[in-house]
Simulated assay, not measured.
Amino acid sequence: MLPVLALVAFATLCNTSSAWAQAAPPTRVQPAPDDAQRAKQVEAEQLFLRAAARIDIKDYEVASTLLERSQALDPSSGTLLNLGECYEQRGLTASAYAAFSAARELAVQTGRTDRAEVAEVRVKRLLPTLRRLTIISPSHAPPSLVIKLDGKPVERDKWNQPVPIDPGVHHLEATADAQPAYDTRVPAPEPGAVATVSIPPWTSAPGSMPMSERGIDGQRVAAIASGIAGVAGLATGTVFGLRSQSKHRESDEHCGPTGCRDAEGVALMDNARSAGNVSTVSFVVGGVACAAAAVLWFAPPFGKGKATQIGLGPGAIRVAAQW
């Protein structure tokens, strides 16, 4: 269906550009408003042609960019249909759904029932596969509150209801009076599922929300604590490792291949072994703690933490949290 749509839209653009070529006076210095619009149509046609060439070689990402620019210059339901196809080929189901929906609306407005029917089929096909996100707005939110998803403002009429999102991890932030109040990452759910994110209640002035409600929750606290414990363990391992090496060198003067010749040599050798054991255990604990910190920090949030405990033992680290 994609080549047919491309030919339909391309034919429309070609007819427009031909009319412009016949009507535009070649000696005009300052173009009239109609001429300026026709110039945009010609540029849109050129972008469309370049996009069609990229579609032929299945370069849908570049084709999408070219079609977006073409649509901005000269809106067309045919361009939107092709843009939706490119989005769908890239797996961007929400973007494809939006493009097909816009194509259907524009086609109805311009009397292109054929394109409206094609867009309707595409919309119905995508509906069961859409991933959706519900953003629950905070209570007592100030009028200046702005919620952004991936850097784009979310319209207020889309708060508190599921809206389609593309696959991947999305950046959600809420600000008031230009002060950041909430910032988090939201992974898209499975196809057909709905994810929900609740922005914490506003406590007072913008920017005064507790850090635990700005994303530094129990999980992040556990990650920071584990990281501190890990660094401490590695530092301890380094200190005792150097001490063990030093004691070994001192014992060389009192000990040989067959054993130590006096009590001082025996004591130095025992101290070297003890320091070496402490160094080994500290390195193990430090490494485990650093790994736990990385997992806790980068993993998706499990929920709002109520209590977090960090425990260290011989050769082990325990991280416990209630959610």
Rank of each mutant, 00 (worst) to 15 (best):
F48I: 00
G265D: 12
Q245K: 15
T129H: 15
M211H: 09
A32C: 00
R50Y: 05
L242T: 03
S144T: 06
I136D: 10
G286T: 05
E117G: 04
T203F: 11
L130K: 10
F298M: 04
S70D: 03
P314V: 15
S204E: 13
V146L: 13
E68W: 00
H171M: 14
A24S: 09
P138G: 02
I57K: 09
V108W: 03
G303Q: 10
P26R: 07
L130P: 08
A39M: 11
S282R: 03
E61N: 04
A11F: 06
E68D: 09
V221N: 08
A223S: 03
M209W: 12
R243K: 10
A119E: 04
G305V: 05
R115M: 08
C86P: 00
G265Y: 12
P206R: 09
T16A: 15
P187G: 00
P189C: 02
E155L: 15
Q46P: 00
A263I: 13
Y182S: 09
D183L: 04
V197L: 11
W323L: 07
K40C: 08
Q41Y: 02
T196Q: 06
A178L: 13
A223H: 01
S246Y: 12
F298V: 03
H248E: 14
A53V: 02
A229Y: 11
D35R: 02
I55Y: 05
S244H: 04
W159T: 02
T196I: 06
G111S: 12
G151K: 06
G233A: 06
A52P: 01
E88D: 14
A96R: 09
A321W: 05
A188D: 02
S198P: 01
S101K: 14
L67G: 00
A116N: 10
C86G: 01
V221L: 14
A235Y: 14
K247Q: 15
K158Q: 14
Q89I: 01
